[in-house]
Computed example of a mutant assay.
Amino acid sequence: MSALNSATWRLIKTETTLSIRDKVAPLWGVGCPLLVLIILGAVPALKEPLQGAGGLTAFDVYVPVMILFALAIVALTALPATLAGYRENGVLRRMQSTPVGPARVLAAQLVANLALAAVAMVLFLVVAGLGFGVEPPRNPAGFALAWLLAAAALLSIGLLVTALAPGRGPASAIGTMLFFPLMFFAGLWVPIANMPPLLQGISHYTPLGAGMQAFQDAYLGAFPAAQPLLILAAYAAGCALAAVRWFRWQ
Rank of each mutant, 00 (worst) to 15 (best):
residue 27 L to V: 15
residue 106 L to H: 05
residue 245 R to E: 09
residue 8 T to F: 14
residue 102 P to V: 11
residue 32 C to H: 05
residue 45 A to D: 13
residue 231 I to V: 15
residue 166 P to N: 04
residue 211 G to E: 04
residue 202 I to R: 00
residue 138 R to D: 02
residue 208 L to K: 01
residue 198 L to F: 15
residue 91 V to K: 01
residue 2 S to K: 02
residue 199 L to P: 01
residue 93 R to T: 13
residue 44 P to H: 04
residue 126 V to P: 07
residue 201 G to C: 04
residue 68 L to P: 03
residue 232 L to P: 01
residue 158 G to M: 02
residue 100 V to P: 03
residue 166 P to D: 03
residue 161 V to P: 02
residue 174 I to N: 02
residue 229 L to K: 04
residue 215 F to G: 02
residue 69 F to Q: 12
residue 54 G to P: 04
residue 119 V to M: 14
residue 164 L to R: 12
residue 206 T to H: 00
residue 139 N to Y: 13
residue 36 V to E: 00
residue 199 L to E: 06
residue 11 L to D: 10
residue 238 G to A: 13
residue 42 A to E: 00
residue 109 Q to D: 13
residue 130 L to V: 13
residue 98 T to I: 13
residue 240 A to P: 04
residue 133 G to T: 08
residue 107 A to I: 12
residue 202 I to V: 15
residue 205 Y to F: 15
residue 165 A to C: 07
residue 2 S to R: 13
residue 25 A to D: 15
residue 173 A to C: 00
residue 169 G to Y: 09
residue 234 A to Q: 04
residue 32 C to T: 14
residue 87 R to G: 09
residue 217 D to A: 12
residue 241 L to I: 12
residue 12 I to K: 10
residue 200 Q to H: 00
residue 171 A to K: 12
residue 50 L to F: 01
residue 69 F to W: 15
residue 81 A to S: 14
residue 2 S to A: 12
residue 175 G to S: 09
residue 61 V to T: 13
residue 98 T to V: 12
residue 32 C to W: 15
residue 4 L to W: 08
residue 151 A to G: 11
residue 164 L to N: 07
residue 206 T to M: 06
residue 64 P to G: 04
residue 200 Q to K: 15
residue 60 D to A: 14
residue 238 G to C: 05
residue 55 G to I: 08
residue 238 G to T: 07
residue 119 V to R: 05
residue 248 R to T: 11
residue 126 V to S: 07
residue 16 T to S: 14
residue 104 R to Y: 08
residue 129 G to P: 07
residue 160 L to G: 07
residue 138 R to I: 01
residue 207 P to Q: 03
residue 240 A to H: 06
residue 50 L to G: 14
residue 3 A to L: 14
residue 17 T to Y: 14
residue 92 L to G: 03
residue 248 R to W: 09
residue 26 P to V: 10
residue 214 A to K: 04
residue 116 L to S: 11
residue 250 Q to F: 09
residue 160 L to K: 05
residue 103 A to M: 11
residue 186 A to T: 01
residue 146 A to M: 07
residue 170 P to C: 02
residue 158 G to I: 08
residue 124 F to L: 15
residue 212 M to T: 02
residue 236 A to I: 05
residue 65 V to C: 00
residue 188 L to G: 02
residue 23 K to Y: 06
residue 87 R to A: 13
residue 5 N to G: 11
residue 3 A to I: 09
residue 78 A to Q: 13
residue 242 A to V: 04
residue 20 I to E: 00
residue 156 S to M: 08
residue 114 L to K: 01
residue 217 D to V: 00
residue 109 Q to Y: 01
residue 97 S to K: 10
residue 120 A to V: 12
residue 206 T to G: 00
residue 134 V to L: 03
residue 29 G to I: 11
residue 143 F to C: 09
residue 136 P to V: 07
residue 33 P to T: 12
residue 178 L to N: 05
residue 85 G to C: 06
residue 137 P to A: 06
residue 56 L to Q: 06
residue 68 L to N: 06
residue 242 A to F: 11
residue 36 V to P: 00
residue 73 I to R: 05
residue 50 L to H: 02
residue 34 L to D: 10
residue 126 V to C: 05
residue 239 C to D: 08
residue 151 A to W: 12
residue 2 S to E: 10
residue 20 I to N: 05
residue 8 T to V: 07
residue 197 P to Q: 06
residue 187 G to E: 08
residue 121 M to H: 13
residue 175 G to R: 05
